[in-house]
């Protein structure tokens, strides 16, 4: 393989990691509050509210049911508005965050659902406010599960980012398409696929290890 190709692959890895990690970070920034809202406004939640729960639930489900590539194209004007362009890594981050936030919200909600309800009741009985329950009970108690969910989200977002390569996104996905698909360099495609697999595996291992280490159960 040529020096040049190696350089391209190295850049691809870097871009993929950058897109994935930044998108995941933003998805969690928005997804955690949404997940918490979904959880606490649900029946038996600490802030039951049918209307908010229904509205947020509907929005989340709607975005989740749109296929990623369609979503990506549909929000191109929005992407241009946010980052000023529609090609490259930064432009991919916008649709990735839009697509992943509802997914993350559901992941967070399901992590919170794992918490023993008795613990929340005990906190309530001790005179905790809703905010104190969220920040001192819900999120800390769900931490190991949230970390595990985080690794799943990373892997999912990585997959989406590769897809974005089809429509002008950067990273390993774009390399696989440009060299493997359009220029018939099969081996480059397989190398990028192998690299993607290795990255997913790494995320998974690190996530599992972290979750196990912080879990005191």
């Amino acid at each position: 393989m040529s020096e040049q190709m190696l350089e391209i692959l190295k850049n691809g890895i870097w871009e993929t990691l950058y897109m994935t990690v930044v998108s995941t970070a933003f998805s969690y920034l928005f997804g955690i509050p949404l997940g918490v809202v979904l959880y606490i406004t649900d029946k038996k939640g600490i802030c039951q509210n049918k209307i908010i729960n229904f509205v947020v639930g509907i929005i989340v489900n709607m975005i989740r049911s749109v296929p990623f590539l369609i979503l990506l194209v549909a929000i191109l004007p929005f992407t241009r508005f946010i980052v000023g362009t529609t090609i490259g890594s930064n432009a991919t981050i916008v649709p990735l965050v839009v697509a992943a936030t509802p997914f993350v919200a559901r992941m967070v909600e399901s992590s919170l659902k794992e918490i023993d309800f008795g613990v929340i009741e005990a906190a309530k009985a001790m005179g905790s406010s809703v905010g104190q329950i969220i920040f001192k009970v819900l999120l800390p108690e769900a931490k190991p599960s949230l970390l595990l969910g985080g690794t799943i989200s990373l892997a999912t977002i990585l997959g989406y980012s590769a897809m974005a390569g089809f429509v002008g996104g950067g990273g390993l996905g774009a390399i696989a398409i440009n060299y493997g698909y359009y220029r018939y360099q099969g081996e480059i495609m397989w190398i990028t696929v192998a690299l993607l697999v290795v990255i997913v595996q790494l995320f998974q291992e690190i996530g599992l290890h972290l979750a196990r280490r912080v879990d005191k159960r």
Binding site: D116, G118, V119, E121, A122, K124, A125, M126, G127, S128, S129, V137, P140, E141, K143, P144, V214, D215, K216, R217
Partner: peptide
């Protein structure tokens, strides 16, 4: 909430914060 601070409670399933 202030009153609840003056009313302690314990449960069959202990309900401690596991983390």
């Amino acid at each position: 909430r202030k009153c609840r601070q003056k009313i302690g409670m314990i449960f069959q399933s202990f309900n401690l914060l596991s983390q």
